[in-house]
Design a protein around this nucleic acid. Structure first.
Lengths: 337, 337
DNA sequence: GCCGATCTTGTTATCGCTAACAATTACCGT
DNA sequence: ACGGTAATTGTTAGCGATAACAAGATCGGC
């Protein structure tokens, strides 16, 4: 990278220096088989000497496809979505793809459709949509065919390729863990019920209770925030019969812990709590939180793999990968007092 | 968006339908002044009818610049960096720019340079580098001139355009707040000292103590994690003279609170704690954390504004915006026991 | 040593758009 | 009505790459 900003060299410049045609340079760049070794070396040398780097825009124009992967996600600083995003960027970079992020403020149909179209304008090679609600999934229905697409945490019922954390299994593990500690039943603070994540966690929780023959207490719905967990906790803390709570994520669990603390209900002595996500801070909550850890890296890698497969071969049939989360035991669960 | 994926319409298709030349369509698209109103309407109608959307790649090719903004940031799920990133995406989307994110694993010179070059390949219109360490700043030294660039939280001494949170002022506010509560002095758990953020927070803390004539206790260095805050806390909890601690971020503060709790040192009764960042959960820590809140949205908006100004006019001189953070008082500070 | 097959390389067209210039039309004052 | 300027539209030429085809070089078998 030279200091003076002369026009960056193009393929013809390389070709001239190497004494070949620009097409041969293109062949070398794309690893075509039929190039003499000696020529290849000469071209490589010229590329190195000029510091040539291909113009992605030109390539995208002629091929109709870029080395760009579009990600549509909700703009959020919640741990789950944020780390999923980070994991994708990481994985994509390793695969030599750039990542264009289309954040949306809300997950309604128009927002999603808009973000998708903006990506399509850029001729992205493929699209990852983190679409944990129905409206987002709907927006993808009338996507033009032929664009590689993977949805994350979408509706398992849909036909397109998808990767999802097994929410139900995670929720079941959390619930059974509390039951196994001796609690008569387990309360659940859920996420917004239009989120598939939330819905499946509810489902897993309910099933686990039913299978154990335990009573299913009324569902407490909240959003994903610590604040909503706190609000829920202020209610639950008033009910002596509540001895075990499964929160739909760790942020909620934090709010919950705080509410219990305020009301003098000791965790885990009086009430046991299990969260979901295993945020890095969970080990430092008071008390350290037992929680369910989804493997976001695995999700991202699986998702990217599926996407790259579609990019390589248009005809790849829809596929589905489900990643099972694991329970992480810490100190927020104990037998009922 | 039609279901069958015929080639999406190009400018000539619109031109034919509207009965004009493709150049006229281009003019309408780019809001050139000299187009008859009637023609403009006809073209607009044709665009709408065909669902035409311009091909960004083609435009980027001919203009040598895209509607893409590149962001280089460390791959992190820490609240500060993550919300900065989210805020940028938001702001850029509102300004009609797409955002390409180049995450880097580490902030060393090669990684940063690599990410920058990958963005340059894509002919980004401008570059935002969240470069809170020296090595990152160094990597930008030999950037080709002419590429609009804004660094965030970089070295204030450098000549390029930059937006930064006023770390020193924030740290001073935190320290003075603790002093004002009656503490003889304030201990500080810092971030990694090669981060400018960390360095300036240290600076602000030290200055505040010196100005107040208070003793400057030894610096406790940590990384940004809750875990490192916990480790630091296990030391500090053993020292009865420690009555006030300013943690370089809220994650550390959480670890700190936990360590104090384990050692039976009550916050704020025995020890007062102030954090930095105001993570959404800070209000739900035990006790609710008094902290310093940088306005990430403001940073992102200022940064984007500066970038767009450079994009619009190459010759814009280097500029500098410093955003002052605000102290948020909650319940983790009290007079010494 | 000759012929067709295979390797290697070059030539030309093209992707969809904007820039620069050319051509046409409209409008003005006298 | 006339010349001249301004407003409007069209024409042509790339941007930098890949695709498709063509041509020249090389090779193997007989």
């Amino acid at each position: 990278m030279d200091v003076k900003a002369a026009r960056s060299p193009a393929m013809t410049d390389v070709a001239r220096l190497a004494g070949v045609s620009h097409q041969t340079v293109s062949r070398v760049l794309n690893d075509h088989p039929n190039v003499r070794e000696q020529t290849r070396l000469r071209v490589r040398a010229a590329i190195a000497e000029l510091g040539y780097r291909p113009n992605r825009a030109a390539r995208a124009l002629v091929t109709g496809r870029s080395q760009l992967i579009g990600i549509v996600a909700q703009n959020s600083t919640l741990y789950g979505p944020a780390s999923l995003l980070a994991a994708f960027e990481q994985a994509a970079a390793e695969a030599g793809f750039a990542v264009s992020v289309g954040s949306v403020g809300r997950l309604d149909r128009e927002s999603i459709a808009g973000a998708v179209e903006r990506h399509l304008d850029q001729r992205v090679a493929g699209l990852v949509v983190i679409a944990p609600v129905k409206s987002a999934d709907d927006a993808l229905e009338d996507m033009p065919a032929g664009v590689p697409l993977v949805t994350i945490d979408g509706d398992p019922q849909r036909s397109h390729t998808l990767v999802t954390v097994d929410q139900a299994v995670g929720a079941r593990a959390a619930t059974e863990h509390l039951l196994a500690a001796g609690h008569r039943t387990v309360w659940h603070i859920s996420g917004p019920v239009d989120w598939y994540d939330a819905a499946w966690r509810i489902e897993g929780w309910r099933r686990a209770l039913e299978d154990a023959g335990a009573e299913v207490p009324p569902l407490v719905t909240a959003d994903w925030s610590a604040s909503s967990g706190y609000d829920a906790g202020r209610m639950l803390a008033r009910m002596p019969e509540v001895t075990a709570v499964f929160a739909a994520n760790d942020h909620q669990a934090l709010g919950l812990l705080r509410a219990f603390s305020e009301h003098g209900r000791r965790v885990p002595h009086d009430v046991s709590v299990v969260g979901f996500d295993d945020v890095p801070e969970a080990a430092f909550f008071i008390p350290p939180l037992t929680t369910v850890r989804p493997d976001f890296d695995a999700v991202a890698q699986a998702g990217l793999g599926l996407l790259l497969a579609q990019i390589a071969d248009e005809a790849t049939p829809p596929n589905r990968i489900v990643i099972a989360p694991a329970l992480v035991e810490r100190a927020s669960v104990a037998p009922p007092g």
